[in-house]
Structures are given as C-alpha cells and as structure tokens.
C-alpha cells in the first residue's frame, strides 16, 4: 500500500559496497562524476565503464535495477543527443539536407555526450541503491560539517531531511484519505479544464495543510519533550567511523582518477 513508498530506491543486500561508510560512497560518486569530464576519447569511456562494471559486480545489485534510473531521463537524453548532433559543426560532412547538416564530429559528440549522461545517472543510482536514506543524511551531515563555520545550520538541515523522509509516506497516505473523504461528498477530481481542476484541489490542499501544520507542532513538542536542543552536546547512536575497507575504497578511487587523467592526456584515441 501507500506506506510502502520509499524515497530513493534502496536495494537491500549484503555486499562490500553496501557496508562501506556512506561518506565514502558520496565522495566516490562525486569523484566518478568529475572523472567523466576529464577525458574526451574512447579509451576513457572504456576505462570508466570497466571500473563501473566492477563496482556493480561487487555491489550484487542486479543490472536491471541500475539501468532503471535511465528511464525517467530518456526524453532529456534524446533531446541533448539531437542538439549535439545538429549543432556541432565540423569538416567531415555526412549528410546535408536543407538546413540540416550532420557531421562526423557531430555524431562523435552525440555518442560521447549521451554516454557521459548515462554514466552520470547510473553512477549516482548505484549510490542510492546501496545506501539507505538515513545513512545518506548522516553522510551529508558529516561531510558538510565544515560549513558550520560559515553559519550554515548543517545539523538542522540534516535533521529536516530525515524528518521529511519519515513523514512523506504518512502525508501521501493522508492525501489519499482526504481525497476519498471529499469524493464521498461528491467532489470530482477528474473532469473539467485545468483551471477547474486546480480549483477542485482546494478541498484537498487545505485539510492537508492543516494536518501537516498540526503534525509539525505535535512533533516539535515531542522533540522538546525528548530533550532535543539542536546539535550541540549531542552524541550519536550510530556514529560514522572509517574502517579498513573504507580506506581501501578511497585509495581505489584515487588510483582510478589518476588513471583516467593520465589516459585522457596521453592516449591517442
């Protein structure tokens, strides 16, 4: 039912990748995305693909889960590919029909751009598939801690993220309930033009807003009652601690980025 909706798309499994410190995974994903822009020839893509393939194998996540992330962006993918294909000028003209000119350089750029985008998406999917939303919030809180110095409320932002994760499914279910209750009073959410439909949503939005406000004030009281007073002096039940595999993972990432940069500089194709 609706309560089963999870944010992100965690794939539960016991693997080396799953057990890594979430901070490692966030940093690694970031490094991987940067690495994709460090080369511009075929060999770079092969290295990036091989490296990614190894990670997927290690994570024990079925490949079809990884590629699922591409579906929502397929339109964007086609659009950018087409743009690259049509707008790249070059010397080797393949087809020229009216104002449409397709060059060899254009085809090359299209393929590379599409590959880059796909790698980018499936790379970050691998992170969300192997990290629970809670671990992710912890990692973000820990990694962005230095921002505290410039008065960014890192702890509060992380706390807000984790509370949102808990309450989104509840509010989704509540929306469904209110919608049904108004339908029982004869409300119609399916017919009419756009303006009419937006207007028809008022009987859903107001009760939902009232309920969200009530929940927020209840929760604030409950947090007060449990001695919550910000991040100061707070201990952690599940503190993030680097272990040996995490160090190795950082070294692997470092090795990978060195190889990619070298390849980008020295390999001809």
């Amino acid at each position: 039912m609706l309560r089963d909706i999870t944010i992100g798309q965690y794939y539960a499994s016991e693997s080396v990748i799953h057990r890594l410190d979430p901070r490692v995974k966030v940093v690694a994903t970031f490094v991987y995305i940067i690495s994709l822009f460090c080369f511009d020839q075929l060999s770079g893509y092969i290295i990036a693909a091989l490296f990614f393939g190894c990670m997927v194998k290690l994570s024990k996540v079925p490949f079809k889960f990884i590629t699922r992330g591409i579906k929502p962006i397929i339109f964007m993918l086609i659009f950018t590919a087409a743009l690259n294909l049509l707008w790249t000028s070059g010397e080797h003209i393949l087809i020229k029909a009216g104002f449409i000119t397709i060059t060899v350089e254009g085809v090359k750029k299209m393929v590379f751009m599409a590959l880059r985008l796909i790698f980018l998406i499936i790379g970050s999917s691998l992170m969300t598939l192997t990290t629970t939303p809670n671990q992710l919030t912890d990692a973000i809180e820990s990694l962005f801690k230095p921002l505290n110095k410039v008065k960014v409320p890192v702890h509060e932002i992380a706390m807000m993220m984790s509370i949102a994760l808990r309450f989104i499914p509840i509010l989704v279910e509540e929306t469904d309930k209110i919608m049904k209750a108004q339908m029982a009073r004869g409300a119609d959410f399916e017919s009419g033009n756009i303006i009419q439909r937006v207007k028809n949503m008022v009987p859903i939005f107001i009760p939902l807003f009232v309920s969200a406000a009530r929940r927020a004030s209840d929760l604030a009281l409950a947090m007060d009652a449990r001695c919550y007073h910000g991040g100061e002096g707070r201990t952690k039940m599940k503190p993030l601690k680097y272990k040996k595999p995490d160090i190795i993972a950082y070294l692997v990432m470092f090795g990978y980025i060195c190889i990619i940069i070298t390849a980008g500089k020295f390999l001809p194709i």
């Binding site: 939303p133 509840i170 409950a222 449990r226 001695c227 919550y228």
Partner: peptide
C-alpha cells in the same frame, strides 16, 4: 505517528539518549 522521529524503530528509541 506525530512523536516518532526516525525511520527505524531502534534509532527512534536512541533519539532521547543522543540528545
């Protein structure tokens, strides 16, 4: 519903002691 803070039971119970 409005007094459970965490997504996992044990983490919620740990919330007070953490604070």
């Amino acid at each position: 519903d409005n007094q459970i803070i965490s997504n996992i039971v044990e983490e919620d119970v740990g919330f007070g002691p953490e604070n």
